[in-house]
């Protein structure tokens, strides 16, 4: 209608004001995030012997990480657990996001989203600890099941192992998965679904051919926002993981605070990030290809 929309706003003065405004948060992130991340990278090429830091650049830490079976085992297990958490969280979350977006009355959607986010904002530490209470030897599940006579012996496979870590993290990251999927579903023009039905598709095929592809950006965001942070989780494996559920973050913490070997910790941190980064990129490439193949 009017030419307001097409009018570019990028005058030189505007750009300068924008840059000035973004300056403080940018500088903050640069000095306290980018520089420290660079420092971690640099550190990983140094070595430490008790209190003396040797600043000659070397690949020794990485060599050790690749040859010492414990490190590799921890890294791979972290990756597996993160993957399992991601799959479980996103699969469990999708129907909920779908339900809220498509079946909840518009005026009640905000309430549902609020209900879903509340647990996320309560003390993480205490939530994880409570899972230990629920899953434990004398925990809620075991005492209840024994009480009603379904089992005689307490179930042992639900605490102090990777299963417990996956359950606990899937709980912790639930809103991170639900929200992006919900947002993507909300954006879908409902008449597209009617058009698909009008053109002869069933509810199921409409979901597969229209809803799901259009929700993919949200699913991709959910996957990344769950997968990347979980690899570095420290509290959950420590509290409910037992010896076989420990993850790389626990080792990083040990290197930094207990063994006083910051360079080795840094190398492990870099490796962990490189691995999630690589897996994430592969995942992005695959989904992009999937979406293009459809489009």
């Amino acid at each position: 209608m009017s030419d307001t929309g097409s009018r570019p706003r990028a005058g030189r003065g505007e750009a300068a004001r924008g840059a000035l405004l973004v300056g403080p948060p940018f500088l903050y992130a640069l000095l306290l995030l980018a520089v420290p991340l660079g420092a971690i990278g640099l550190f990983s090429f140094w070595t430490q012997d008790y209190l003396t830091l040797d600043t000659t650049l070397t690949l020794k830490n990485y060599r050790e990480a690749f040859t010492e079976p414990l490190y590799m085992q921890l890294l791979l297990r972290s990756l597996m657990i993160s993957g399992a958490v991601t799959v479980a969280t996103v699969l469990l979350a999708f129907p909920v996001a779908y339900y809220v977006s498509f079946h909840v009355r518009p005026e009640r959607k905000a309430m549902w989203i609020f209900l879903i986010t509340i647990p996320f904002w309560t003390s993480y530490l205490i939530r994880v600890f409570l899972w230990k209470v629920i899953l434990g030897f004398n925990g809620v599940i075991n005492t209840t099941l024994q009480g009603i006579g379904i089992i005689d012996e307490p179930l042992r496979f639900i605490l102090y192992n990777a299963n417990a870590v996956v359950i606990t993290l899937a709980h912790a990251f639930a809103p991170f998965a639900i929200l992006p999927i919900f947002v993507a579903l909300e954006k879908i023009d409902r008449s597209l679904l009617e058009a698909s039905r009008d053109l002869g598709e069933t509810h199921v095929t409409t979901f597969l051919r229209v809803t799901l592809p259009l929700a993919m950006p949200g699913v991709v965001a959910a996957v990344l926002i769950v997968f990347i942070p979980t690899i570095g989780d420290y509290v959950t494996p420590r509290l409910v993981g037992g010896p076989n559920g420990l993850m790389i973050a626990n080792m990083i913490q040990t290197q930094f605070l207990k063994l006083n070997n910051a360079p080795m910790g840094a190398a492990l941190a870099v490796l962990a990030m490189a691995m999630v980064g690589a897996v994430s990129l592969v995942f992005l490439a695959l989904t992009r290809r999937y979406l293009r193949g459809r489009g």
Partner: peptide, 18 residues
């Protein structure tokens, strides 16, 4: 029509565009 510059001209008179 859209994009002919009429709004730009108006905004120039108003002082929002130099």
């Amino acid at each position: 029509p859209s994009g002919c510059g009429k709004t730009t001209l108006l905004r120039t008179i108003a002082g929002f565009e130099a």
